[in-house]
């Protein structure tokens, strides 16, 4: 089994007023290719900081981050942008979509920046929108869709160009339980079908129950790494 993500001795400290907060405290982790991992912790436990470090959105104070065999914590802005464009799909808690683009255009956005041809983009975006159950809503703008529909568009955008890794930060935070379950089923299906590695940061126990590997964090450290049978 190859390693999709490797973090070695990551440290990250934020200053809040006069207090230093250790968001990551000598944290090390490996996630294999095709892994489906959930990071859970109380608020401030460091899961979002870890996700941002893995996604090249934030730099650790020390330690190493490797994604798809490439060390990324020393890369410049443009190189990190290229890495995110080619290797990583993001799903954020909220505000996932570009409001002036339709659902289809949002899904095609990453591919368009990648330089994928119009026909291929159209074909792939149509297929993925159907897969996430948004057939017929392709031309709606985010403001014309519900929270769940928007989140599904964001998921479609994150996976449509087949990235090696999908990072999702509290993807179900704004969704009701039924929509949350549907979204997790979709993640599981994409994970199994395309061997995409998923790392999901969440508080949501229903999400935690969906994954085969649950990593519990506290004060920037891993306190438990559990292999489990998904519900």
């Amino acid at each position: 089994m190859t390693i999709a993500v490797k973090c070695i001795e990551l440290c990250k400290t934020y200053r809040q007023g006069d207090t230093d907060i250790k968001a990551l405290d000598h944290l090390s982790i490996d996630v294999e290719t095709g892994g489906f991992v959930c990071l859970s912790s109380p608020s401030g436990g460091g899961k979002t900081t870890l996700l941002n470090a893995i996604g090249g959105l934030d730099k650790p104070d020390s330690g190493e981050v490797w994604v798809s065999g490439q060390r990324i914590d020393q890369l410049g802005k443009a190189a990190l942008a290229d890495l995110r464009l080619r290797e990583i799909g993001f799903v954020f808690q909220a505000y996932n979509l570009i409001p002036v683009l339709s659902a289809r255009e949002n899904v095609e956005f990453v591919m368009q920046v990648q330089g994928v041809s119009t026909d291929e983009r159209r074909q792939k975006s149509q297929a993925i929108l159907e897969e996430v159950g948004l057939k017929g809503l392709e031309d709606r703008r985010p403001a014309q869709m519900s929270g769940g529909q928007q989140q599904r568009v964001a998921v479609a955008r994150a996976v449509v160009s087949r990235p090696a890794l999908v990072l999702a930060d509290e993807p179900t935070a704004n969704l009701d339980s039924k929509t949350s379950d549907a979204l997790m089923d979709l993640f599981s299906e994409l994970n199994e079908r395309h061997q995409t590695t998923f790392i999901i940061a969440t508080h949501d126990r229903r999400v935690m129950a969906h994954v085969p590997r649950l990593i519990k964090m506290l004060d920037g450290r891993i306190v438990d790494d559990i292999a489990q049978t998904p519900v």
């Binding site: 995110r84 464009l85 956005f109 990453v110």
Partner: peptide, 16 residues
């Protein structure tokens, strides 16, 4: 600001 951050996060280069 949020959208610009999102586009950068999705892989759009600062020059774009």
């Amino acid at each position: 600001v949020r959208e610009i951050g999102l586009m950068l996060a999705l892989g759009m280069r600062p020059s774009s």
